[in-house]
Nucleic acid binder design. Structure first.
Lengths: 364, 364
DNA sequence: TTGAAAGCGTTACCAA
DNA sequence: TTGGTAACGCTTTCAA
């Protein structure tokens, strides 16, 4: 009497089997699409499943197979266009490969990242893509790697960890844009990043624990030094974590006796803040200040002037990482790889030669 | 002899119990943090767990408890800043409440959405937040709601579904911006949306299946009609789904004999495309064309001129939806609610009075 | 081709 | 406070 109508609680393989008059194993075979069954039995079981509105329980399936069909993704902040684009790349290939994505924001905090990793591992994700907040604190990543589940690092690597990594050629990009600025006559170039140090001051690239940014700063640093500049470390500003902090840093920079003639923004969020502040204080770009940004965010081509950027293959970064992960999850056990994607300097109109008009008269 | 070193394969409650010399049930109690155990036993079990590097298997736990600690989120496109911001709101409250988020992009396709829903339900998510691609095709949503798992609709509602909904007051926002444009003398106002119809032409608001956009168009439509305008439906352009399509639509619009004097962009991605094209063809904003956009995207304040927008509480939209969902998952069984968040018109400098200079001389 | 039964790692119930 | 044991819903041998 409780056989015909769809039951109130979810029906299981056993229910379908009973309804179809076959064994549980047989019903499971047709429902799970494995093993062999006669055509007659197949249609009977399918009909029963339909009648009972059977829905497979992936949890139970995962528990016996050991695979969850899920990949865990940890990024700093999904709200940042850089990450949302990369995540789009990841989800696109994940979907295509039959995986779903569990997303966690670390807020660029290593402890959050660690907790997230623990959770994802406990949920038995089949693989992980992480954009590590700090390259120095990677014990939890080592654990994850050791757990046997494939791990791919995104945008930020780790030299020592021996794990698959997909990054952009940040160092080279920083070198080339710095050289370009120097060639245009700039001698006081500031680098501005959200990465922070305990005392909010920069001393050496080793202070920077975010891989991509450290590599950029290394490139910036050495190129400046090669050009004979001194005190380069004073031109590297850290801790632009919020709009307010960013503004404060830029203000201090602008009001300093030796005002920089050019700023390199480490991401588009920072560049936008620079742009807003310049507008507010009637600082002309590029006449009073040149601006260059990492990440070709959509708006950078539409400002007046449009801003010169380093275009990173952000979507491809995510795509490549996910593809690699899928390969690993399928059993590829080659040695760890390091994929470096090329960047491109997109010259627009936010850089000029400082000799034209930018240096205040206190020079000559 | 295989008791001391951390085993190669993950250890379980049973392993810990054996190591600690207690029963499985007791070990499970301290590991799971339920029931009561003596202090002595607790420390013994914890020590054993530590020694064996025990990690709980959430899958197994979920299977017996029926709760997975996971909420499913389906949005149109995480790459769109609107959604990435809303998702940030969702993940923030989810984390705080102890849930993780499974994210799926539907690409605004109802079939993808349906498949995603099936997958998420199979994975036994505890609750769902969906931004439905089409209000008309909601059978799968109905199923989900009937499955007993709480469902909250985000940004786009459904009048008939009887399910919790969190939206912005789109209709009111559209009315007020339309009135504003009319007050400024505009008589030919175009509305441009990514939503599409089978033949890419707009006839009636009922053609639009995306709730938020339909409500906006209704507001636009009726306000225009009240002002005595005719053929309003010809000024509503659908199908701006890609930059290319958007450009084509704008081009056609601009070259038409009756060129609109103002454009309302239904989202910031479209507005950006309008802006780019205007720049390319030296169409002056607002002198030649006024522009207004839904969503106060970060770049809109920084262009020349800055663009007038309807500021939506996007983060709060996600936040509110997630909070509501958490309440439901905790057992709140009140009647379905409909939360309408207020918007704000942010007037900048992209709207002018057409009499000043916008109409080409072919008028007089 | 089919069926019976064991097992996955938990929680939960009931006795002791 | 503890231990034994039955679920949970599926897959996977192993026989028949």
């Amino acid at each position: 009497m409780d056989k015909n109508a769809p039951p109130n609680s979810a029906s299981t393989v056993a229910d379908v089997a009973r309804e179809a008059g076959v064994s549980k194993a047989t019903a499971a075979r047709v429902l799970g699409g494995y093993g062999t069954v006669s055509e007659k039995v197949r249609v009977a079981v399918m009909a029963a499943a339909e009648a009972l509105d059977y829905r497979p329980n992936e949890l139970a399936r995962s528990m016996t197979t050991g695979r969850s069909g899920t990949i865990g993704v940890i990024v700093g902040d999904i709200e940042n266009p850089f990450f949302s684009l990369a995540v789009r790349g990841i989800t696109d290939v994940a979907r295509q490969a039959g995986f779903t994505v569990v997303l966690v924001n670390s807020s660029e905090d290593a402890r959050n990242e660690e907790a997230a990793l623990r959770t994802l591992l406990a949920k038995r994700v089949d693989g992980l893509i992480v954009s590590p907040a700090k390259e120095s604190e990677t014990d939890h990543l080592r654990d994850a790697a050791r757990s046997g589940r494939p791990l791919v690092l995104l945008d930020r690597g780790s030299e020592t960890l021996g794990v698959d990594t997909v990054v952009a050629n940040d160092r080279h990009a920083a070198e080339s844009i710095t050289r370009k600025l120097i060639a245009r006559g700039h001698r006081h170039i500031a680098y501005l990043t959200a990465c922070d140090t305990p005392d909010h001051h920069f001393r050496t690239p080793a202070d920077i624990h975010t891989g991509s940014v450290r590599r950029r700063i290394e490139g910036f640093f050495s190129t400046c030094q090669e050009a004979g500049m001194t005190d380069v470390e004073h031109n590297i500003h850290v801790g632009a974590v919020t709009p307010e902090r960013t503004r404060a840093i830029i203000m201090a920079m602008i009001e300093a006796p030796l005002r920089p003639t050019a700023i390199i923004a480490s991401d588009s969020v920072i560049a936008l803040e620079v742009f807003k502040l310049c507008r507010e204080f009637a600082i002309r770009i590029p006449d009073d200040l040149s601006l260059v940004s990492f990440h070709d965010a959509d708006w950078t081509s539409v400002t007046t002037p449009p801003v010169t950027v380093i275009r990173q293959p952000v979507y491809q970064l995510g795509e490549t990482a996910a593809r690699l992960l899928v390969r690993r999850m399928k059993g590829d056990v080659g040695p760890p790889t390091r994929t470096v994607l090329e960047t491109e300097l997109v010259e627009r109109a936010s850089v000029s030669m400082p000799d034209q008009s930018s240096e205040p008269p206190h020079r000559g």
